[in-house]
């Protein structure tokens, strides 16, 4: 039985006498342990979907169930197994971090004697132990976000619905959230995490869905999607010198190489600390053909025959420093998909 099952879910908002369709027809299945990245621009309908799963909105049509429980018929049971973190939330004034968590622990009806240890656990998990006695309003935005995650974890939910957990955070705070999500993943939780920014998703999501204007455009396994959408995958080739000649050789292999881009003189960092900075390599003009640099090629041949390109380059005497497939680049997928280039 899938953990989350959504069938033809639809939501219309009523505005006066008219209806506005926020979500058209969403169908999705997620297994236990899946980390589903729900990606789409602002206003795409992510929050609407998540709120319906969280029983805070009533669907106009369609059904959704979590762990086999229908969200419309048994909202109370759903709330017991779901941890929901809204995109915008507030905290109470004049209250300390542990009191805040104690409030939610008792609100979730945890036994009184177990509350202190649970609070300590979630504080440790979210790295807020030193802040236990601070006032909530004195925390930074990133800490508040982690505190909200901590309160979401208090009742040990099976499924977590995280609506843009990393929006509005600085790079360091983002990485902390990302690490935290990886930890939750290792705890076996099923997580839906939405974002309008892509790169922060690729590291820990095993499945993604791209939504635009209320329609799910693609959904599936990250790697499969990348391939099916592109019909190619990228290979980075770093050469020590004679980049002009390498470019010419690669361009000549048009049967397996669709495009060749010069993306810079340095090797691209894989773990870029700032996801907002251009992760999508810009194509540049080759200024000095005799210098070294990185070329990105779109490979369309058989996946296991990539070595042939390396073979050709090496045989032609190009001094290849590195030859590798960069991590799946969701942004690339996203741009293609939303432009309508679906193969």
């Amino acid at each position: 039985m899938p953990m989350i099952e959504i069938n033809h879910l639809r939501k219309e908002y009523r505005e006066g006498n008219k209806a506005k369709v926020a979500l058209k027809d969403l169908s999705l299945e997620l297994e236990q342990g899946d980390i589903f990245g729900f990606i789409g621009p602002n206003g795409a309908g992510k929050t609407t979907t998540i709120k319906m799963l969280a029983t805070l909105l009533i669907p106009t049509a369609g059904t959704a169930s979590i762990n086999g429980i229908n969200v419309v018929e048994h909202p109370e049971k759903i709330r017991a197994i779901v941890g929901y973190m809204p995109d915008f939330f507030g905290v109470y004034d004049d209250i300390k971090v542990w009191e805040y968590l104690d409030f939610f622990a008792s609100a979730y009806r945890l036994p009184r004697d177990r509350r202190p240890s649970i609070i300590d656990d979630v504080l440790a998990l979210t790295d807020l132990t030193e802040k236990k006695d601070s006032y909530v309003e004195s925390l930074s935005r990133g800490m508040k976000q982690r505190l909200c995650l901590a309160k979401t974890l208090v009742h040990d939910p099976l499924v977590m619905l995280l609506d843009e957990p990393a929006s509005g955070l600085d790079p360091r705070a983002r990485i902390e959230i990302r690490e935290l999500l990886k930890e939750l993943q290792s705890m076996g939780k099923t997580i839906i995490v939405s974002s309008h920014i892509l790169p922060e998703m690729e590291e820990f999501c095993n499945k993604i869905g791209i939504i635009e204007s209320g329609e799910l455009i693609v959904a599936g396994d990250v790697k499969t999607i990348a391939r099916s959408v592109r019909g190619q995958h990228n290979i980075d080739v770093v050469v020590l010198d004679e980049i002009g000649r390498a470019h010419a050789i690669l361009t000549g292999m048009s049967d397996v190489v669709r495009e060749v881009k010069f993306v810079g003189n340095r090797r691209r960092s894989l773990s870029d600390e700032n996801p907002d900075a251009e992760t999508q390599p810009m194509e540049r003009r080759i200024e000095d053909p005799s210098a070294g640099g990185t070329l990105q090629i779109g490979y369309t041949g058989e996946p296991d025959e990539e070595y042939r390109i390396l073979q050709v380059l090496v045989q032609a005497g190009v001094r290849v420093k590195a030859f590798y497939t960069p991590e799946t680049d969701l942004e690339d997928v996203f741009l293609r998909v939303t432009k309508g280039v679906v193969s």
Binding site: P2, V21, K24, D25, S27, L28, E29, L30, E31, D34, F36, K207, G209, E212, S213, G214, E215, L216, I217, V218, A219, G220, D221, V337, T338, G340, V342
Partner: peptide, 14 residues
């Protein structure tokens, strides 16, 4: 909502 030019490649995630 504007009709999206994308032909929906909707697929259930399994």
């Amino acid at each position: 909502l504007p009709a999206t030019p994308v032909k929906a490649a909707r697929r259930s995630v399994r």
